[in-house]
């Protein structure tokens, strides 16, 4: 236990970086994911095909391989803004298709009857989207989106293996120093992760109950 208390600043430093990775790459993935989802449902066939191929390829590539590309091959191609930014890029790219899929399934989840009803009472395209489809789609999208961010929280740990000093990296370093207190140290690291993931999970459950559309 004393190993944990002594090294608390190290853990907090790692936790700060984990939160930084989560928030920055989460925002990036949200922006990129909205863009990909828009391409995916756009009326233009070539954009749709491109977005589909992108989603399938990235979703089926292991995160370690994406981060390997960012941490080793991008610097080799003379692009090296530091390992934190490189890990951010990797996590953003890896998470974006999952965001896009969550958005798409939310929009597809709104029954066609809703759109038909909106059109038949004379709403225009913009009106039926903004008054009828989107309010329902956003509600259905929020819980799966939070799940994506929970998974992202856990995925930031992989960046620790690619030279980013975050929670997992901090844990590994402290374990190397204090081999006698492995269990306590790793449980402390797990607690930090659980603080984020369980909170997000509770929020998702709360939101799901609150905004559920009764049909």
């Amino acid at each position: 236990m004393d190993a944990v208390i002594e090294n608390l600043p190290v853990f907090l430093e790692g936790f700060k970086n984990t939160l930084g990775l989560l928030i920055l790459s989460g925002t990036g993935a949200l922006v990129l994911g909205v863009f990909v989802a828009a391409l995916r449902i756009s009326p233009i066939a070539s954009f749709r095909a491109f977005a589909t191929v992108y989603t399938e390829l990235v979703r089926n590539t292991p995160l370690t391989l994406v981060l390997f590309f960012c941490a080793y091959i991008l610097p080799y191609l003379q692009f090296s803004p530091g390992y934190f930014v490189l890990a951010l890029i990797g996590l953003t790219v890896y998470t974006s298709p999952f965001v896009a899929e969550a958005l798409r399934s939310g929009i597809n989840g709104v029954p066609v009857g809703q759109a038909e009803a909106a059109r038949s009472v004379g709403l225009t395209f913009g009106q039926s989207l903004s008054y009828v489809i989107m309010p329902q789609a956003v509600r259905m999208v929020i819980p799966p989106l939070i799940n994506v961010f929970i998974a992202l929280t856990k995925n930031t740990s992989v960046a620790g293996a690619f030279f980013v000093f975050e929670l997992f990296g901090a844990g590994r370093q402290v374990v190397n120093d204090r081999g006698d207190a492995v269990i306590a140290i790793l449980l402390a690291v797990a607690t930090f992760y659980l603080i984020v993931t369980i909170t997000l999970g509770q929020v998702a459950g709360r939101v799901e109950k609150k905004v559920a559309v009764l049909r």
């Binding site: 856990k154 740990s157 992989v158 293996a161 997992f168 269990i183 790793l186 992760y193 659980l194 369980i198």
Partner: peptide
């Protein structure tokens, strides 16, 4: 709620 990687190391 825990990363798989952390579990492996543990």
């Amino acid at each position: 709620g825990m990363p798989v990687l952390l579990m492996m190391l543990f």
